[in-house]
Structures are given as C-alpha cells and as structure tokens.
C-alpha cells in the first residue's frame, strides 16, 4: 500500500487574464508535503502568475486556489510558508540581523537568529547593512528571510540568479537539508541543471497550462534523443538522409548528430569513417527535453 500524500497547496482550473493576455489557462497543480517541485517554462509561461496566486498576491478570475486548505489571502495560511521573490529591494539602511528579526516577528514559531543565519550561510553578514552587500550576498539574505519562519512550504523564485558557483552550491545544500526536514519547496528557475540537481518532480508550463508533470527522468525520457559529437570528414548533408538521424550539422572539424537510436547510427558511422575520432555520446539532458517540449507545444498551437 502506498502512503497517502498530503496536498498542501493546489490550483485547480485556475484562470488568470491580464487584459487580452491569458496568463493561466485553466491550470491544475498540486503541491505535496515534503516534495521539491521545480516549476519550469519559457518566459510568459505563467510561472510567476501561478506563484502569485498561491501566495495570494493576485486573485484568480476563475478556478480554485488553496494553501493549507485555506484561501492564501488568509494570514494563517501564509504563516506556514516562506517566500523568496525574484526581485525585492529590502530596506537598504537596515542591518541583516534587523531584517531577520523583523521577518521572524511575523511567524508564530520562527527559528532562532543563529540557526537561520547558519543554515542560510549569512552568519558573517549579520552586523552589516543590506545596502553594503554584494548582489549574491543580498540573495543569500533573502533566502535567510524565506526560511526564518520555519515554513512548511517554501517558495523560491529564481533563487540563484546573481550567485556565484560556491554560493549556489551552498544554497543547494541548504535546500536539500530543508527538504530532508520535511519542508516542501516550489522552485522556479532558468537553470535547468538546478532543477536536475534538486527536484524530485518537474512541472513544465507553457502558455498557462501544464505541458508535463513527472520526475526528472520521466521528463528526460520524453525526449528520446541522444547527441553524438565527433571529428570526421563525413558530409553532414548526406548524414541527414540516414535512418534514425534527426539532425546533423558541421561545426568546424566537428560533426553534431542527433539520433533516437544512437547504437545503429554509431555502427554505421564508425564503418563509414575509420578515421573518426574524439567520439562523444550523450543522452539528452533536461535542457534538450525542455526545449523540445516547449517547441512541440508552440508548433502544435501554430497548426491548430
């Protein structure tokens, strides 16, 4: 028997229009306790609108929005969440510790200042004024504000934009730790490797609807494409005529081939050019799957 999973937030049939633009077109989305969900999609897909609805910042034109079984505009529901928005300029003249204490005051049972600072990696920044911090440090402080209330559900909108690689890794570690403690996380990001590294579940949005919903592997397998890269004199145009070659192009001395059955193409390739060298074969990553998925969607719409 599988354990029932608790739904802590949901959108059902959510529609939101801004004038003539339909941002959400009947979106259904459920968030479960303790899961890390990555919300992906090209610009204008409706990610920010979906988050805004769940945070109670905007009201849906139609459909249901629930946060912990309540209307997100009820403060009791929001006392159980943490938020890090894409762009927020915090009061420049306040110290980091003052910002943290203020945000902690909004919550019934916040973490201690030390615990928050340690978890978010801002312990050394506490006495400093917000304006004196670098962009990456400011993002870390915003993350600290998001987690200080001991949330059960954490919204992170593009959290690692402007962070260097070290800071990003530190943040990933903190996010994993929170998830291990049972905190659910909704993450929107442009960095697909971030979703790949963190997410248990990936939802791809396009034009205000769910294009795909499943594990990272499930999403990747939707694109059964493998990339082959090698140095060879073979003619790219001729290769395009081969069976199972979806795409082939030359880039300097290198050939790039996309194939759905790489084994057959490789056998023929090695026979055709015994001098072939520097062979690389790589499964499509999330990036390719994502591109293919959103392109498919656009093409379908054009046909329809």
């Amino acid at each position: 028997m599988t354990k029932p999973v608790e739904v802590i937030a949901s959108l059902s049939g959510a529609i939101k229009r801004y004038g003539a633009l339909t941002a959400l077109d009947g979106l259904d989305l459920m968030l479960h306790r303790g899961e890390l969900l990555a919300l992906l999609g090209p610009n204008g897909a409706g990610k920010s609108t979906a988050i805004s609805l769940l945070l109670g910042l905007v009201r849906a034109d139609a459909g249901q929005v629930e946060l912990f079984g309540r209307d997100p505009q009820q403060i009791d529901a929001r006392r159980r969440i943490g938020v890090m928005l894409q762009s927020a300029s915090l009061p420049a003249t306040l110290r980091v510790s003052e910002l943290l204490r203020l945000t902690m005051s909004y919550y019934p049972t916040p973490r201690s200042l030390e615990e928050t600072a340690q978890l978010a990696g801002v312990a050394d920044l506490l006495p400093r004024r917000y304006a004196a911090l670098s962009g990456g440090q400011q993002r870390r402080v915003q993350f600290a504000l998001a987690i200080c209330g001991r949330p059960e559900l954490l919204f992170l909108d593009e959290p690692t934009v402007g962070m260097d690689i070290d800071a990003r890794q530190t943040l990933w570690v903190a996010i994993r730790r929170l998830v291990a403690e049972g905190c659910a996380v909704v993450l929107t990001t442009h960095y697909l490797e971030e979703a790949e590294a963190l997410a248990q579940r990936v939802v791809v949005l396009g034009k205000g609807r769910v294009l795909s919903d499943g594990s990272v592997d499930a999403l990747r397998s939707r694109v059964a494409m493998t990339r082959i890269r090698c140095i060879s004199d073979l003619d790219a145009m001729a290769l395009m005529q081969w069976p199972h070659v979806a795409h082939a192009e030359r880039e300097g001395t290198h050939l790039h081939i996309h194939s759905d059955v790489p084994e057959k193409v490789l056998r023929r390739l090695l026979d055709a050019d015994p001098a072939l060298s520097e062979l690389e074969v790589r499964r499509a990553g999330l990036a390719e799957a994502f591109t293919a998925l959103t392109r498919e969607d656009a093409a379908e719409r054009e046909v329809a």
Binding site: T2, P4, V5, E6, V7, I8, S10, M30, H32, R33, F68, G69, R70, I75, D76, A77, R78, R79, R80, Y107, P108
Partner: peptide, 17 residues
C-alpha cells in the same frame, strides 16, 4: 499514489497575541 486533501487545522498558523 493516493492523495488526501489537508484539513484546515484551526491551531496551525495561529499566533499568540
């Protein structure tokens, strides 16, 4: 995987005066 909807718990999210 079955899902259950969460009940709105009156105590959760409440804050002392």
């Amino acid at each position: 995987m079955s899902t259950i909807a969460i009940e709105a718990m009156p105590s959760a999210g409440a804050m002392s005066l």
